[in-house]
Amino acid sequence: MVGDDGPVLGGAVEEGTAIPAAVVAVAAGVEVRPVWRNAFGGLTFELVGAPERRFLKWAPAGSGRDLAAEAVRLAWAAPFTAVPTVLDQGGDGAGSWLLTAGLPGRNAVEARWLADPGRAVRAVGVGLRALHDALPVAGCPFSWSVSDRRAAAAAVATTPAQRRLVDDLGDPPPPDLLVVCHGDACVPNTLLTDDGTCSGHVDLGALGVADRWADLAVATWSTVWNYGPGWETVLLDAYGVAPDDDRTAYYRRLWRLGP
């Protein structure tokens, strides 16, 4: 997402970050290693030493992140594409949690991929196209439409700048192609194996039907945040689509309201 003054990004977890009590309880004595903090204060942990690779997401109460909704979306998408398998889900007064099996690979902004952005960006573009091609629009029960997103943003807009963003958005361009969008196609949510192949996607809590440019506008934008300028066309070429300045600009404005 993007705040009033620019992009609000996730990243590495600071040393000494407190581990929520629910995470300790679910881990049941297995060591937990913090691996990611998202823009909303949520944390992701790897369960080190578990019989199989596992990850535990935690979202604090009041963050606006609904891990129960993500669990439902992951279960729906799993027959069609590589996403984490849901093992358990729950919550308490402090927040909610989601336990999943790990996928092969690591996220596309680990150090080795920051040092090889061309290869990483191409894999992200190929992986996003594969996701869009695999997930069936017909029968998808989830929406990520402009109208739904605007309504959600208007309901939580608390500052004049946020309300102005909602009011000034305007009507969307005609859809280019409706697909089941990832909903947060920033490059860290693509996993890559050591050979530079996309091995799956994570963080699908907003997955739903929308114009493919709702994902593409954000995916290309996130290459700038993570790798620097010059990689947007590389991603589009790998995806297999020509640049579309109007749709890109519109869906980036919409992203400023929140995923």
Results as ranks from 00 to 15, higher is better:
Leu43Lys: 01
Thr17Asp: 07
Trp76Ala: 04
Thr44Asp: 09
Asp167Leu: 11
Val121Lys: 01
Leu236Met: 06
Asn189Asp: 10
Ala210Phe: 02
Ala134Gly: 08
His132Trp: 00
Thr223Lys: 05
Gln89Phe: 01
Lys57Ala: 11
Ala77Asn: 06
Asp168Tyr: 06
Arg106Pro: 01
Ala77Pro: 03
Arg150Cys: 12
Gly205Lys: 00
Ala115Gln: 14
Pro175Val: 01
Gly118Ala: 14
Leu114Arg: 15
Arg164Ala: 15
Val121Asn: 07
Ala206Leu: 12
Ala101His: 05
Ala101Leu: 15
Arg164Lys: 11
Asn38Ala: 07
Asp5Ser: 13
Ile19Gln: 05
Asp168Met: 08
Phe45Gly: 05
Arg119Ser: 11
His182Arg: 06
Thr223Pro: 08
Asp237Ser: 14
Thr81Phe: 15
Phe80Pro: 03
Val48Gly: 12
Val32Cys: 03
Cys198Thr: 14
Val35Asp: 09
Val209Lys: 00
Gly3Asp: 09
Leu178Thr: 12
Asn226Ile: 02
Ser143Thr: 13
Val35Glu: 10
Glu110Thr: 15
Thr197Cys: 15
Lys57Cys: 04
Asp168Thr: 13
Leu235Trp: 00
Ala71Gly: 14
Pro243Asn: 02
Ala123Trp: 11
Thr158Ile: 06
Gly230Thr: 09
Gly91Asp: 01
Asp167Ile: 02
Val2Ile: 15
Ala130Val: 10
Val166Lys: 02
Gly228Ile: 07
Trp255Arg: 11
Val83Gln: 05
Asp244Pro: 01
Glu110Arg: 14
Glu15Asp: 15
Pro243Tyr: 04
Ala134Glu: 03
Pro7Met: 09
Gly170Val: 06
Ala50Gly: 10
Glu70Met: 08
Arg163Thr: 04
Gly102Ser: 13
Val32Thr: 10
Val156Asp: 06
Ala238Phe: 07
Thr85Cys: 11
Asp184Pro: 02
Glu70Pro: 00
Leu128Ala: 05
Gly105Ala: 10
Leu191Ala: 02
Leu103Lys: 07
Tyr250His: 05
Ala153Asp: 05
Arg112Leu: 14
Leu135Asp: 00
Phe80Ile: 09
His132Leu: 09
Gly127Cys: 11
Ala101Gly: 15
Ala219Asn: 03
Asn189Thr: 04
Val137Arg: 06
Arg247Phe: 03
Ala61Tyr: 08
Val234Met: 12
Pro7Ala: 10
Arg150Gln: 14
Pro136Tyr: 06
Arg54Thr: 06
Val179Tyr: 01
Arg122Thr: 14
Ala242Asp: 11
Val30Gln: 08
Ala217Ser: 10
His132Glu: 01
Tyr251Asp: 07
Leu47Gly: 02
Val30Asn: 05
Ala120Arg: 02
Leu47Asn: 01
Ala12Phe: 12
Ala155Asn: 09
Asp167Gly: 07
Val137Cys: 03
His182Phe: 04
Leu43Gln: 03
Leu169Ile: 04
